[in-house]
Design a protein around this nucleic acid. Structure first.
Length: 417
RNA sequence: GUGGUCGUAGCUCAGUUGGUUAGAGCGCUUGGUUGUGGCCCAAGAGGUCGGGGGUUCGAGUCCCCUCUACCACCCCA
Protein backbone atom coordinates (compact mmCIF):
# COMPACT_ATOMS: atom_id res chain seq x y z
CA UNK A 1 0.00 0.00 0.00
CA UNK A 2 1.75 3.10 -1.14
CA UNK A 3 1.47 6.34 0.75
CA UNK A 4 1.03 8.39 -2.36
CA UNK A 5 -1.79 7.64 -4.69
CA UNK A 6 -2.40 9.85 -7.69
CA UNK A 7 -5.06 12.55 -7.19
CA UNK A 8 -8.71 11.51 -7.50
CA UNK A 9 -9.80 10.69 -11.00
CA UNK A 10 -6.29 10.29 -12.37
CA UNK A 11 -4.32 7.14 -12.91
CA UNK A 12 -0.91 5.88 -13.79
CA UNK A 13 -0.48 3.94 -16.99
CA UNK A 14 2.17 1.29 -16.56
CA UNK A 15 4.39 -0.24 -19.25
CA UNK A 16 2.27 -3.36 -19.61
CA UNK A 17 -0.75 -1.25 -20.58
CA UNK A 18 1.08 1.03 -22.98
CA UNK A 19 0.80 -1.34 -25.95
CA UNK A 20 -2.98 -0.87 -25.80
CA UNK A 21 -2.55 2.88 -26.03
CA UNK A 22 0.02 2.60 -28.78
CA UNK A 23 -2.34 0.40 -30.72
CA UNK A 24 -5.11 2.99 -30.61
CA UNK A 25 -2.71 5.77 -31.49
CA UNK A 26 -1.28 3.85 -34.41
CA UNK A 27 -4.75 3.01 -35.77
CA UNK A 28 -5.73 6.66 -35.42
CA UNK A 29 -2.66 7.82 -37.29
CA UNK A 30 -3.11 5.22 -40.01
CA UNK A 31 -6.86 5.64 -40.49
CA UNK A 32 -7.01 9.42 -40.36
CA UNK A 33 -4.05 9.68 -42.73
CA UNK A 34 -6.07 7.79 -45.31
CA UNK A 35 -8.47 10.73 -45.31
CA UNK A 36 -5.77 13.35 -45.49
CA UNK A 37 -5.70 14.38 -41.83
CA UNK A 38 -2.47 15.58 -40.26
CA UNK A 39 -1.69 15.46 -36.56
CA UNK A 40 -1.83 18.67 -34.53
CA UNK A 41 -0.54 19.20 -30.99
CA UNK A 42 -1.83 22.17 -29.07
CA UNK A 43 -1.20 23.22 -25.45
CA UNK A 44 -3.00 21.36 -22.65
CA UNK A 45 -3.95 24.73 -21.19
CA UNK A 46 -5.39 27.80 -22.84
CA UNK A 47 -6.73 31.16 -21.78
CA UNK A 48 -9.99 30.41 -19.98
CA UNK A 49 -11.78 32.67 -22.44
CA UNK A 50 -11.06 30.24 -25.26
CA UNK A 51 -13.30 27.67 -23.62
CA UNK A 52 -15.89 30.00 -22.18
CA UNK A 53 -16.55 31.66 -25.50
CA UNK A 54 -16.62 28.57 -27.65
CA UNK A 55 -18.11 25.88 -25.42
CA UNK A 56 -20.61 28.29 -23.89
CA UNK A 57 -20.73 30.13 -20.61
CA UNK A 58 -23.84 28.29 -19.43
CA UNK A 59 -22.75 24.74 -20.24
CA UNK A 60 -22.08 22.21 -17.48
CA UNK A 61 -18.52 21.87 -18.64
CA UNK A 62 -17.76 25.55 -18.21
CA UNK A 63 -19.96 26.09 -15.18
CA UNK A 64 -18.58 23.47 -12.91
CA UNK A 65 -16.01 21.23 -14.50
CA UNK A 66 -13.11 23.43 -15.51
CA UNK A 67 -9.72 23.24 -13.88
CA UNK A 68 -8.86 26.92 -13.90
CA UNK A 69 -5.94 28.77 -12.37
CA UNK A 70 -4.10 32.00 -12.55
CA UNK A 71 -0.47 31.90 -13.61
CA UNK A 72 2.31 34.05 -12.28
CA UNK A 73 1.61 36.73 -14.82
CA UNK A 74 -1.99 36.95 -13.66
CA UNK A 75 -3.31 35.20 -16.73
CA UNK A 76 -6.57 33.28 -16.37
CA UNK A 77 -5.85 29.81 -17.71
CA UNK A 78 -7.72 26.52 -17.86
CA UNK A 79 -6.66 22.93 -18.45
CA UNK A 80 -8.48 21.95 -21.61
CA UNK A 81 -11.76 20.13 -20.97
CA UNK A 82 -12.04 19.13 -24.62
CA UNK A 83 -9.96 19.40 -27.75
CA UNK A 84 -11.91 21.39 -30.32
CA UNK A 85 -11.68 24.88 -28.81
CA UNK A 86 -7.89 24.90 -28.60
CA UNK A 87 -7.51 23.48 -32.06
CA UNK A 88 -9.79 26.20 -33.46
CA UNK A 89 -7.80 28.81 -31.62
CA UNK A 90 -4.67 27.45 -33.30
CA UNK A 91 -6.26 27.24 -36.73
CA UNK A 92 -7.20 30.92 -36.58
CA UNK A 93 -3.55 31.49 -37.45
CA UNK A 94 -4.03 29.66 -40.74
CA UNK A 95 -6.19 30.08 -43.81
CA UNK A 96 -8.91 27.87 -42.34
CA UNK A 97 -11.16 30.80 -41.37
CA UNK A 98 -11.03 31.95 -44.98
CA UNK A 99 -12.64 28.75 -46.10
CA UNK A 100 -9.55 26.73 -46.95
CA UNK A 101 -10.28 23.15 -46.01
CA UNK A 102 -8.03 21.95 -43.20
CA UNK A 103 -7.96 18.48 -41.71
CA UNK A 104 -6.29 17.75 -38.39
CA UNK A 105 -6.43 15.06 -35.71
CA UNK A 106 -5.14 15.04 -32.15
CA UNK A 107 -4.71 12.76 -29.17
CA UNK A 108 -4.08 13.85 -25.63
CA UNK A 109 -5.23 14.35 -22.05
CA UNK A 110 -8.33 16.39 -21.21
CA UNK A 111 -9.40 17.57 -17.76
CA UNK A 112 -12.81 17.88 -16.17
CA UNK A 113 -13.53 18.26 -12.49
CA UNK A 114 -16.24 15.64 -12.26
CA UNK A 115 -16.96 12.91 -9.77
CA UNK A 116 -15.13 9.82 -11.06
CA UNK A 117 -17.22 6.80 -12.05
CA UNK A 118 -17.09 3.94 -14.49
CA UNK A 119 -15.46 5.26 -17.64
CA UNK A 120 -15.11 8.72 -16.24
CA UNK A 121 -11.89 10.25 -15.03
CA UNK A 122 -10.80 13.76 -14.21
CA UNK A 123 -7.84 13.37 -16.47
CA UNK A 124 -8.85 11.31 -19.46
CA UNK A 125 -7.73 11.07 -23.05
CA UNK A 126 -9.48 11.88 -26.24
CA UNK A 127 -8.56 11.18 -29.80
CA UNK A 128 -10.33 13.57 -32.11
CA UNK A 129 -10.46 15.04 -35.58
CA UNK A 130 -11.55 18.35 -37.05
CA UNK A 131 -12.38 19.12 -40.67
CA UNK A 132 -12.52 22.87 -40.92
CA UNK A 133 -13.32 25.42 -43.59
CA UNK A 134 -16.11 23.86 -45.62
CA UNK A 135 -19.74 23.25 -44.78
CA UNK A 136 -21.74 20.56 -46.52
CA UNK A 137 -23.64 17.39 -45.70
CA UNK A 138 -20.94 15.51 -47.57
CA UNK A 139 -18.31 16.72 -45.14
CA UNK A 140 -20.42 15.69 -42.17
CA UNK A 141 -21.04 12.24 -43.58
CA UNK A 142 -17.41 11.70 -44.45
CA UNK A 143 -16.48 12.51 -40.88
CA UNK A 144 -19.05 10.06 -39.51
CA UNK A 145 -17.95 7.48 -42.00
CA UNK A 146 -14.33 7.90 -40.92
CA UNK A 147 -15.36 7.48 -37.30
CA UNK A 148 -17.08 4.20 -38.07
CA UNK A 149 -14.05 3.10 -40.07
CA UNK A 150 -11.81 3.97 -37.13
CA UNK A 151 -13.95 1.93 -34.71
CA UNK A 152 -13.91 -0.99 -37.11
CA UNK A 153 -10.11 -0.91 -37.27
CA UNK A 154 -10.08 -0.93 -33.48
CA UNK A 155 -12.14 -4.16 -33.55
CA UNK A 156 -15.07 -2.42 -31.89
CA UNK A 157 -18.28 -4.01 -33.11
CA UNK A 158 -21.91 -3.63 -32.06
CA UNK A 159 -21.75 0.11 -31.52
CA UNK A 160 -24.76 2.30 -32.15
CA UNK A 161 -24.74 5.58 -34.09
CA UNK A 162 -27.22 8.23 -33.03
CA UNK A 163 -27.69 11.41 -35.04
CA UNK A 164 -29.73 14.57 -34.91
CA UNK A 165 -29.59 18.14 -36.11
CA UNK A 166 -29.53 21.38 -34.20
CA UNK A 167 -30.24 23.53 -37.22
CA UNK A 168 -28.34 26.57 -38.34
CA UNK A 169 -27.76 29.85 -36.55
CA UNK A 170 -30.97 31.38 -37.91
CA UNK A 171 -33.02 28.40 -36.69
CA UNK A 172 -32.07 28.98 -33.11
CA UNK A 173 -34.49 31.78 -32.36
CA UNK A 174 -37.66 30.17 -33.74
CA UNK A 175 -36.74 26.78 -32.31
CA UNK A 176 -36.05 28.14 -28.86
CA UNK A 177 -39.25 30.17 -29.01
CA UNK A 178 -41.19 27.02 -29.83
CA UNK A 179 -39.58 25.17 -26.94
CA UNK A 180 -40.18 28.04 -24.57
CA UNK A 181 -43.83 28.38 -25.61
CA UNK A 182 -44.36 24.71 -25.03
CA UNK A 183 -42.41 24.23 -21.81
CA UNK A 184 -43.66 27.40 -20.14
CA UNK A 185 -46.89 25.55 -19.39
CA UNK A 186 -45.10 22.37 -18.23
CA UNK A 187 -42.07 23.63 -16.38
CA UNK A 188 -43.88 23.78 -13.04
CA UNK A 189 -44.00 20.04 -12.73
CA UNK A 190 -40.47 19.43 -14.04
CA UNK A 191 -37.23 18.90 -12.09
CA UNK A 192 -35.23 21.76 -10.69
CA UNK A 193 -32.41 21.31 -13.18
CA UNK A 194 -34.92 21.73 -15.98
CA UNK A 195 -36.26 24.89 -14.41
CA UNK A 196 -32.70 26.13 -14.52
CA UNK A 197 -32.25 24.98 -18.10
CA UNK A 198 -35.50 26.66 -19.10
CA UNK A 199 -33.83 30.00 -18.53
CA UNK A 200 -30.25 29.25 -19.39
CA UNK A 201 -30.14 26.56 -22.05
CA UNK A 202 -33.53 25.29 -23.00
CA UNK A 203 -32.21 22.71 -25.45
CA UNK A 204 -30.79 20.67 -22.66
CA UNK A 205 -34.23 20.02 -21.24
CA UNK A 206 -34.65 17.61 -24.12
CA UNK A 207 -32.13 15.11 -22.83
CA UNK A 208 -33.08 15.33 -19.17
CA UNK A 209 -33.50 11.85 -17.73
CA UNK A 210 -35.51 12.62 -14.63
CA UNK A 211 -38.73 10.55 -14.51
CA UNK A 212 -40.96 13.52 -13.73
CA UNK A 213 -39.83 15.28 -16.91
CA UNK A 214 -40.27 12.41 -19.36
CA UNK A 215 -43.95 12.92 -20.13
CA UNK A 216 -43.52 16.61 -20.90
CA UNK A 217 -40.48 15.98 -23.04
CA UNK A 218 -42.14 13.21 -24.99
CA UNK A 219 -45.02 15.48 -25.97
CA UNK A 220 -42.81 18.45 -26.77
CA UNK A 221 -42.68 19.74 -30.35
CA UNK A 222 -39.95 18.49 -32.65
CA UNK A 223 -37.70 21.50 -33.04
CA UNK A 224 -36.84 20.44 -36.54
CA UNK A 225 -40.31 21.53 -37.64
CA UNK A 226 -39.30 25.10 -36.93
CA UNK A 227 -36.11 25.02 -38.96
CA UNK A 228 -35.78 26.68 -42.33
CA UNK A 229 -36.24 24.56 -45.42
CA UNK A 230 -32.53 24.68 -46.15
CA UNK A 231 -31.69 23.31 -42.68
CA UNK A 232 -34.23 20.54 -43.09
CA UNK A 233 -32.80 19.72 -46.49
CA UNK A 234 -29.30 19.70 -45.07
CA UNK A 235 -30.22 17.10 -42.51
CA UNK A 236 -32.20 15.09 -45.02
CA UNK A 237 -29.18 14.99 -47.27
CA UNK A 238 -27.01 13.79 -44.39
CA UNK A 239 -29.33 10.88 -43.65
CA UNK A 240 -29.61 9.97 -47.32
CA UNK A 241 -25.87 9.95 -47.74
CA UNK A 242 -25.42 7.83 -44.65
CA UNK A 243 -27.87 5.31 -46.03
CA UNK A 244 -26.07 5.28 -49.37
CA UNK A 245 -22.80 4.72 -47.55
CA UNK A 246 -24.32 1.69 -45.89
CA UNK A 247 -23.98 3.22 -42.44
CA UNK A 248 -26.82 2.37 -40.11
CA UNK A 249 -27.98 5.04 -37.72
CA UNK A 250 -30.82 6.03 -35.51
CA UNK A 251 -32.30 9.53 -35.41
CA UNK A 252 -32.56 10.68 -31.84
CA UNK A 253 -34.59 13.88 -31.50
CA UNK A 254 -33.34 14.32 -27.99
CA UNK A 255 -29.66 14.26 -28.86
CA UNK A 256 -28.54 17.86 -28.44
CA UNK A 257 -25.10 17.49 -26.81
CA UNK A 258 -23.76 19.65 -24.07
CA UNK A 259 -21.60 22.14 -25.87
CA UNK A 260 -23.08 25.30 -27.34
CA UNK A 261 -20.98 25.47 -30.46
CA UNK A 262 -22.85 22.74 -32.33
CA UNK A 263 -24.94 23.53 -35.41
CA UNK A 264 -26.58 21.26 -37.92
CA UNK A 265 -25.49 17.63 -37.58
CA UNK A 266 -24.71 16.19 -34.18
CA UNK A 267 -23.92 12.54 -33.52
CA UNK A 268 -22.87 10.16 -30.83
CA UNK A 269 -21.70 6.56 -30.80
CA UNK A 270 -22.74 4.46 -27.83
CA UNK A 271 -21.83 0.96 -26.78
CA UNK A 272 -23.49 -1.42 -24.37
CA UNK A 273 -20.13 -2.71 -23.14
CA UNK A 274 -19.71 0.29 -20.85
CA UNK A 275 -21.61 1.31 -17.75
CA UNK A 276 -23.96 4.23 -17.52
CA UNK A 277 -21.37 6.31 -19.36
CA UNK A 278 -22.12 4.59 -22.62
CA UNK A 279 -20.84 7.13 -25.14
CA UNK A 280 -17.55 6.18 -26.75
CA UNK A 281 -17.46 9.02 -29.23
CA UNK A 282 -19.39 12.15 -30.04
CA UNK A 283 -19.22 15.06 -32.38
CA UNK A 284 -20.93 17.19 -34.92
CA UNK A 285 -20.80 20.35 -36.94
CA UNK A 286 -19.89 23.52 -35.14
CA UNK A 287 -19.23 27.18 -35.51
CA UNK A 288 -16.81 28.67 -33.05
CA UNK A 289 -15.88 32.21 -32.16
CA UNK A 290 -12.39 32.68 -30.81
CA UNK A 291 -11.46 35.54 -28.48
CA UNK A 292 -9.50 38.27 -30.11
CA UNK A 293 -10.88 37.65 -33.56
CA UNK A 294 -13.96 38.92 -35.30
CA UNK A 295 -14.16 35.81 -37.40
CA UNK A 296 -15.71 32.55 -36.46
CA UNK A 297 -14.57 29.24 -37.75
CA UNK A 298 -16.74 26.31 -38.69
CA UNK A 299 -16.11 22.67 -39.21
CA UNK A 300 -17.15 19.16 -38.37
CA UNK A 301 -15.39 16.73 -36.11
CA UNK A 302 -15.61 14.18 -33.37
CA UNK A 303 -13.73 12.95 -30.32
CA UNK A 304 -13.55 9.48 -28.82
CA UNK A 305 -12.56 8.63 -25.26
CA UNK A 306 -9.46 6.48 -25.30
CA UNK A 307 -10.12 4.88 -21.90
CA UNK A 308 -13.62 4.03 -23.03
CA UNK A 309 -12.38 2.54 -26.28
CA UNK A 310 -10.09 0.31 -24.24
CA UNK A 311 -12.97 -0.67 -21.95
CA UNK A 312 -15.14 -1.62 -24.89
CA UNK A 313 -12.34 -3.66 -26.46
CA UNK A 314 -12.01 -5.48 -23.15
CA UNK A 315 -15.73 -6.11 -22.90
CA UNK A 316 -15.71 -7.56 -26.39
CA UNK A 317 -12.56 -9.59 -25.74
CA UNK A 318 -11.39 -7.98 -28.94
CA UNK A 319 -8.64 -9.88 -30.69
CA UNK A 320 -5.93 -7.28 -30.90
CA UNK A 321 -2.64 -7.87 -32.61
CA UNK A 322 0.05 -8.65 -30.10
CA UNK A 323 3.22 -6.89 -30.99
CA UNK A 324 5.77 -8.58 -28.82
CA UNK A 325 9.42 -8.26 -29.54
CA UNK A 326 11.70 -11.24 -29.41
CA UNK A 327 14.41 -10.92 -26.83
CA UNK A 328 17.78 -12.59 -26.38
CA UNK A 329 18.92 -13.18 -22.80
CA UNK A 330 22.65 -13.34 -22.12
CA UNK A 331 23.69 -15.64 -19.30
CA UNK A 332 27.22 -15.35 -17.98
CA UNK A 333 29.28 -17.50 -15.67
CA UNK A 334 32.21 -15.92 -13.90
CA UNK A 335 33.18 -12.31 -13.60
CA UNK A 336 35.48 -12.34 -16.58
CA UNK A 337 32.72 -13.63 -18.84
CA UNK A 338 30.25 -11.18 -17.41
CA UNK A 339 32.45 -8.24 -18.27
CA UNK A 340 33.01 -9.49 -21.79
CA UNK A 341 29.30 -10.18 -22.23
CA UNK A 342 28.52 -6.66 -21.17
CA UNK A 343 30.33 -5.54 -24.31
CA UNK A 344 28.71 -8.25 -26.37
CA UNK A 345 25.27 -7.04 -25.29
CA UNK A 346 26.02 -3.52 -26.54
CA UNK A 347 27.33 -4.93 -29.76
CA UNK A 348 24.18 -6.98 -30.36
CA UNK A 349 21.93 -4.06 -29.55
CA UNK A 350 23.78 -1.88 -32.04
CA UNK A 351 22.97 -4.58 -34.56
CA UNK A 352 19.30 -4.11 -33.81
CA UNK A 353 18.75 -7.08 -31.52
CA UNK A 354 16.72 -6.83 -28.30
CA UNK A 355 18.94 -7.97 -25.50
CA UNK A 356 18.42 -8.59 -21.80
CA UNK A 357 21.33 -9.57 -19.64
CA UNK A 358 21.97 -10.56 -16.07
CA UNK A 359 24.27 -7.86 -14.68
CA UNK A 360 24.97 -9.45 -11.32
CA UNK A 361 26.68 -12.67 -10.34
CA UNK A 362 23.93 -15.27 -10.19
CA UNK A 363 23.76 -18.98 -10.64
CA UNK A 364 23.00 -20.51 -13.98
CA UNK A 365 19.69 -21.70 -12.61
CA UNK A 366 18.71 -18.27 -11.42
CA UNK A 367 19.63 -16.78 -14.79
CA UNK A 368 17.61 -19.38 -16.65
CA UNK A 369 14.64 -18.72 -14.43
CA UNK A 370 14.88 -15.02 -15.17
CA UNK A 371 15.12 -15.71 -18.87
CA UNK A 372 12.02 -17.87 -18.65
CA UNK A 373 10.07 -15.24 -16.75
CA UNK A 374 10.98 -12.64 -19.33
CA UNK A 375 9.65 -14.92 -22.07
CA UNK A 376 12.75 -14.55 -24.18
CA UNK A 377 13.05 -16.63 -27.30
CA UNK A 378 16.71 -17.45 -26.90
CA UNK A 379 19.38 -17.56 -24.24
CA UNK A 380 22.99 -16.90 -25.17
CA UNK A 381 25.32 -18.63 -22.75
CA UNK A 382 28.96 -17.65 -22.50
CA UNK A 383 31.28 -18.62 -19.68
CA UNK A 384 35.02 -19.24 -19.52
CA UNK A 385 34.77 -22.43 -21.62
CA UNK A 386 33.17 -20.60 -24.51
CA UNK A 387 35.55 -17.69 -24.24
CA UNK A 388 38.53 -20.01 -24.58
CA UNK A 389 36.90 -21.71 -27.59
CA UNK A 390 35.77 -18.36 -29.01
CA UNK A 391 32.16 -19.57 -29.25
CA UNK A 392 28.83 -19.11 -27.51
CA UNK A 393 25.97 -21.48 -26.82
CA UNK A 394 22.58 -20.40 -28.06
CA UNK A 395 19.59 -22.11 -26.56
CA UNK A 396 16.16 -21.96 -28.12
CA UNK A 397 13.75 -21.68 -25.22
CA UNK A 398 10.79 -23.17 -26.98
CA UNK A 399 12.41 -26.37 -28.18
CA UNK A 400 15.10 -26.50 -25.54
CA UNK A 401 17.71 -27.27 -28.21
CA UNK A 402 21.07 -25.61 -28.00
CA UNK A 403 23.74 -24.95 -30.58
CA UNK A 404 27.34 -23.88 -30.34
CA UNK A 405 28.01 -20.91 -32.57
CA UNK A 406 31.31 -19.29 -33.51
CA UNK A 407 31.70 -15.86 -31.93
CA UNK A 408 31.98 -14.15 -35.30
CA UNK A 409 28.74 -15.74 -36.49
CA UNK A 410 26.53 -14.66 -33.58
CA UNK A 411 24.74 -11.75 -35.21
CA UNK A 412 24.17 -13.66 -38.42
CA UNK A 413 22.87 -16.69 -36.53
CA UNK A 414 20.51 -14.70 -34.33
CA UNK A 415 19.11 -12.72 -37.20
CA UNK A 416 18.44 -15.78 -39.33
CA UNK A 417 16.93 -18.03 -36.69
C1' G B 1 -22.23 18.57 -6.18
C1' U B 2 -25.90 14.34 -4.16
C1' G B 3 -26.53 9.15 -2.86
C1' G B 4 -24.84 3.79 -2.18
C1' U B 5 -20.82 0.05 -1.45
C1' C B 6 -15.92 -1.13 -0.15
C1' G B 7 -10.74 -0.43 1.89
C1' U B 8 -6.27 -6.73 5.51
C1' A B 9 0.93 -8.60 2.02
C1' G B 10 2.82 -6.73 -5.11
C1' C B 11 -2.25 -9.25 -6.76
C1' U B 12 -7.03 -12.01 -5.37
C1' C B 13 -9.00 -12.62 -0.85
C1' A B 14 -9.86 -15.43 4.34
C1' G B 15 -9.95 -13.72 9.33
C1' U B 16 -15.49 -17.15 13.15
C1' U B 17 -20.40 -13.70 18.79
C1' G B 18 -13.89 -8.20 19.88
C1' G B 19 -9.22 -12.33 23.07
C1' U B 20 -2.39 -14.47 22.93
C1' U B 21 3.50 -13.20 18.30
C1' A B 22 -2.13 -11.30 11.49
C1' G B 23 -3.35 -15.98 7.45
C1' A B 24 -3.94 -18.59 2.40
C1' G B 25 -3.29 -18.89 -2.85
C1' C B 26 -0.68 -16.57 -6.75
C1' G B 27 3.65 -13.58 -7.49
C1' C B 28 8.73 -12.44 -5.73
C1' U B 29 13.88 -14.07 -3.75
C1' U B 30 17.05 -18.17 -2.66
C1' G B 31 18.13 -23.28 -2.51
C1' G B 32 17.21 -28.77 -4.02
C1' U B 33 25.93 -30.02 -5.06
C1' U B 34 30.29 -28.98 -9.92
C1' G B 35 27.37 -24.45 -16.04
C1' U B 36 20.81 -24.69 -17.83
C1' G B 37 14.25 -22.48 -17.46
C1' G B 38 9.05 -24.19 -17.50
C1' C B 39 6.66 -29.16 -13.28
C1' C B 40 7.70 -30.51 -8.22
C1' C B 41 9.73 -29.73 -3.14
C1' A B 42 11.83 -26.52 0.72
C1' A B 43 13.14 -22.03 2.98
C1' G B 44 12.76 -16.74 3.00
C1' A B 45 11.39 -11.58 2.20
C1' G B 46 7.09 -8.62 2.34
C1' G B 47 1.47 -5.84 6.23
C1' U B 48 1.81 1.05 11.05
C1' C B 49 -5.14 -4.53 8.87
C1' G B 50 -6.54 3.25 4.26
C1' G B 51 -5.89 7.48 8.07
C1' G B 52 -7.59 9.88 12.77
C1' G B 53 -10.44 9.73 17.17
C1' G B 54 -13.59 6.88 20.62
C1' U B 55 -15.73 2.51 23.52
C1' U B 56 -13.08 -1.63 26.11
C1' C B 57 -8.73 -5.01 30.52
C1' G B 58 -8.21 -5.98 25.18
C1' A B 59 -10.32 -3.74 18.32
C1' G B 60 -8.55 -6.09 11.72
C1' U B 61 -13.28 -7.13 14.22
C1' C B 62 -17.96 -2.21 17.55
C1' C B 63 -19.08 3.54 17.09
C1' C B 64 -17.90 8.47 14.92
C1' C B 65 -15.07 11.46 11.49
C1' U B 66 -12.00 11.64 7.22
C1' C B 67 -9.56 10.00 2.66
C1' U B 68 -9.53 6.94 -1.56
C1' A B 69 -11.56 3.53 -4.95
C1' C B 70 -15.76 1.58 -7.16
C1' C B 71 -21.07 2.21 -8.59
C1' A B 72 -25.37 5.36 -9.60
C1' C B 73 -27.40 10.49 -10.45
C1' C B 74 -26.03 15.08 -13.03
C1' C B 75 -23.23 15.59 -17.44
C1' C B 76 -20.08 13.89 -20.88
C1' A B 77 -15.55 10.87 -24.05
Amino acid sequence: MSSYLPPPGTSDIFPDEIPRWNFIESIARKTFSLYGYGEIRTPVFEYSEVFKKSIGQETEVVQKEMYSFEDRGGRELTLRPEGTAGVMRALMETDAPNGVETRVWYLGPMFRGERPAAGRKRQFHQVGVENVGKTSPEHDVESISMLMHFLEELKISDSKLLINTRGAQEDKVPAEKALRDYFSSHIDKMCKDCKERFNKNIWRILDCKMPECQESIRLSPDVKDFFTTSSKDYFKKVTELLTKQGISYEIDNRLVRGLDYYQHTVFEVTHSGLGAQNAIAGGGRYSIAVPGSSKSISGVGFAAGVERLIMVQDSLNAKLPILKDDFIFIASLGENAREKNFLLASELRKNGLNVLMELEARSMKAQMRSADKDHVSKVLIRGDDEISKNTVIIKDMKSGNQTEVAYSEIVKYLKLS
